[in-house]
Amino acid sequence: MPQARRVSMAMVAQHAGVSGQTVSRVANGSPRVDPETRTRVERAMAELGYRPNRAARALRTGRTHTLGLVAQTLATVGNSRMLQAVAEAAAERGYALTVVTLGADAAIDDAFERLRDQGVDGAIVLNEASALARDATSAAMRLVVVDSPPDERFVSIGTDHAAGARIATDHLLAAGHHTVHHVAGPAGSYASAQRERGWRDALVAAGRDAPAVVRGDWSAASGHEQTARMLAAGVVTAIFAANDQMALGALRALAEAGRRVPRDVAVVGFDDIADAAQFPPPLTTVRQDFDALGEHAVRALVAAVEGGAPGDVLLVPELVRRASA
């Protein structure tokens, strides 16, 4: 079978009735093209099936139009949703994505080294890996870190987890519960620590004692185990779980203990995963916008790659009221 002929910039230029330099400017995202001409060139590219030659463009611009993404794991729903959001936002801007997962023991400096070897223009670091990014000694690349306190070495994009936890806890207190128990996330997680802080701050502000924290690992199994432990230890009427998976495990433990939700025990989660509305009962939760997080992270990194000076972004989550609380 004969090999398909590669569409060149010259062919696009002829089809669109413009110069080759104009096509080059459009392909490289230059602002020095009027909107009508840009639209005509982009239409010609689509009609001819033009695809930029990344290697040639890298030689011309010194950029590969490839972004890196570093995550501890992609097994959690939050990280997998962030990967999807980042991949879509990068593709919309003509950037490829290279993903490195750390696993349990890998050092983040090794991840950065792998990304540098692949010539990425910069990297996005997700969630649990953010604490490692703050301790990295050899990044030497443009970085956007998701869920990290401000740091002059990189741009920080995140959700106001503490505010979301306060909203959840205040909602349960307003429903008449004397206090709220908390199934927290892993000790090394920034998001987990912020959600625990917001829960505690809300209880202190209301003049209530904070029960002992039990800690899971973001999984439904750990939420089930820790909730069963809480029920065995004393009276529980309201639970704020640090994510929806652990809230799902809590619902199972409560059902097994013969506790009705929300009549006997109210439950609120965090994240608003796709299936949260399908839990029995549908889960009241705090929604963070993963699509917006991915969009902001890619926008900031691309801006930095292209010579801009992006700032930190902190998104405010919202309570989604359903039947569990």
Score class of each variant (00 low, 15 high):
G308Q: 10
A210W: 11
I108S: 05
E196N: 03
E36W: 09
P280G: 07
R60T: 15
P317G: 04
R229S: 11
R54W: 14
T137E: 07
R229I: 02
V183E: 04
G20S: 03
V120Q: 04
L314C: 07
T98L: 14
V41L: 06
T137L: 07
R114V: 14
V236L: 01
A297F: 11
R25T: 00
Y95P: 02
G308T: 09
G198W: 10
A96L: 15
R60V: 15
M230Y: 06
L203V: 06
L173V: 08
A233T: 08
G223M: 02
D34F: 12
D217W: 13
R5H: 13
V261H: 09
W218N: 04
Q278G: 11
A297E: 04
S80P: 01
A13S: 05
D110E: 15
A165F: 12
T101L: 10
A202E: 00
T284M: 04
E318H: 15
T37R: 14
R259C: 13
S222C: 05
L132R: 13
R153G: 04
F154G: 01
T64E: 08
L231D: 05
V320G: 08
D151L: 10
R25G: 01
V183S: 03
D272G: 11
V313R: 10
R166D: 03
R134N: 05
P280K: 02
R5E: 11
P262A: 07
E47W: 10
R252T: 15
A85F: 12
Q3M: 14
D271P: 02
R57I: 14
M1V: 11
H224Q: 10
T64F: 12
S192M: 02
N79S: 09
V236P: 00
R142K: 15
R116L: 07
I167G: 00
A193D: 09
A323L: 13
V77H: 12
V18Q: 04
R153V: 05
A241V: 08
L143K: 03
V213W: 12
Q72F: 08
E306H: 13
G94R: 01
E113N: 05
L203P: 03
P317L: 06
E306L: 06
A309L: 09
R93M: 01
V305Q: 02
A16I: 08
E152Y: 10
R321T: 15
A257W: 11
